[in-house]
Amino acid sequence: MLLHRRIYQFFIIYLMGVALLLLLKYSLNLSDYVIPSLIDIWHTGIDVFVRYFSDVMNTLSVAVVGQIVSLLLAFLIGITGRQATWFGSFIKVAAYNVQAYPIVAIAPIIFILLGDGIATRLLIAAMICYFPLLLSVLGIMAEPITEIEHFYKVTGRMRWQLEIKIRAFENLNKLTTVIAGSATLAMAGTIVAEFIAANAGIGYSIRVALYQSDLAKILIALFLIGMTLSVYQGLLEATGYAVRKGWARI
């Protein structure tokens, strides 16, 4: 199954990363301050696991809501902007521009406007994952599937709902991949938001750990983030697969 493959693939990557760090540590004879020892990581893991796990869940829940918000928004604008060519190109230009701004520069402004509560985290998460989603949705929705749509057009049966249904169905693979991929962006966005402008979540915990130069904590946080993301993405992919199977029988 996709899910368990994702998890063990993550394990391999993570272990390789840690192994490289340890290799560096022991070959250069570095102290635990520079690179924590395996025992250090283990003890820290036991110490902070529960707290960090709930932090990651907290972050994930914001990321999921942020992703849903950006999905809805992307579809809304993608659908309304698909035909009006001026509006469509305007949206694309805006999307590219805003995407080019580093979120760390925008975040303090958002923080001033919205404070350090959940709204800021949500907005930044949505901002980071919204634009790539919008571009994909816009691209898909603006591309006619002539060989299917022709019949409905010439017989006067075409409705906008049908048009969207056809285009979404024909690009189901692309859509589910983009949605699963945007989970990473939503999570990254939330973590960045927490890092600069929040009082909760794993991003905030990472910031605190950085203040204390505690690399072991960071490694545990990275492990939990990677793990959670793998599971979440795996679930999204499995859902996407189920949808495709149910809808398209493939």
């Binding site: 060989e147 299917i148 022709h150 019949f151 010439v154 049966r157 169905f169 024909e170 809808w247 398209a248």
Partner: peptide, 23 residues
């Protein structure tokens, strides 16, 4: 006056029979 051509497809979400019934 209708134009039909040989590369046209029916949507894939339900069976051919169901589509024909609908249209």
């Amino acid at each position: 006056l209708l134009y039909s051509y040989n590369l046209e497809r029916l949507p894939g979400w339900s069976s051919v029979g169901k589509h024909l019934e609908k249209i």
